[in-house]
Amino acid sequence: MTASREVGFRLDPVLVGRAAAVESLDAAVATVRAGRSVAVEVCGEAGLGKTRILRELARRAADAGLLVRTGRATQYEQGVPFGLFAEMVEAADGGPDDAASSVPAAVRRMLTRTPAPGAALLLDDVHWADSASLELTEHLLGSPPPVPVLLAVAFRSACPPARLVNAIARLGPAATLIDLPPLDAASLDVLLVGVPRRRRELILRASLGNPLYIKALSRLDDDELDSLARLAHRHDPVDADRLAGSRRSVLAGLAAEITAQQPPVQRVAHIAAVVGDHTTIDLVRHVAGLPMSMVTAAVDQLGRLGLLDADGGRLRYRHPLMRAAAYAR
Rank of each mutant, 00 (worst) to 15 (best):
A3T: 10
G8F: 12
F9V: 08
V16R: 07
R18D: 12
A20F: 05
S24E: 15
L25K: 14
V29H: 12
A34N: 09
A34L: 07
G44S: 03
E45N: 00
I53P: 04
I53T: 15
R55L: 14
E56S: 13
R60S: 09
A61C: 02
D63A: 15
A64L: 08
L67V: 15
R72A: 15
R72M: 10
A73D: 02
Q75K: 04
F82H: 15
E87R: 13
P96L: 09
D98E: 14
S101V: 13
S101C: 11
A106T: 11
V107S: 06
R108W: 00
R108M: 01
R109F: 00
R109W: 01
M110V: 00
T112C: 01
T112N: 03
A116E: 10
A120G: 02
V126L: 01
H127Y: 03
H127S: 05
A132K: 10
A132G: 14
E135L: 09
T137S: 02
E138R: 15
H139Q: 12
G142Y: 01
P148C: 04
L150P: 08
A154V: 06
R156D: 05
R156H: 11
S157A: 11
S157G: 02
A158H: 06
A162I: 11
V165T: 15
N166H: 14
N166Y: 09
A167F: 08
R170T: 08
P181V: 04
P182I: 05
P182H: 12
D184W: 00
L188S: 03
L188H: 04
D189L: 13
L191F: 02
R197H: 13
R200P: 05
S207P: 09
G209S: 09
P211V: 02
L212C: 11
K215H: 02
A216P: 05
A216V: 12
D221H: 07
D222C: 03
D226P: 05
D226M: 11
R230I: 13
H235T: 12
V238P: 12
L243N: 08
A244G: 15
G245L: 12
S246T: 13
S249D: 14
E257G: 12
P264A: 06
R267K: 15
R267Q: 15
T280S: 14
V284Q: 06
H286F: 01
G289Q: 05
L290Q: 10
L290D: 10
P291C: 05
M292P: 00
A298S: 15
Q301W: 00
L302H: 03
L305S: 06
L315Q: 07
P320C: 00
A324Y: 10
A324H: 06
A324C: 08
A325H: 13
A326N: 01
A326L: 01
Y327V: 01
Y327L: 06
A328Q: 08
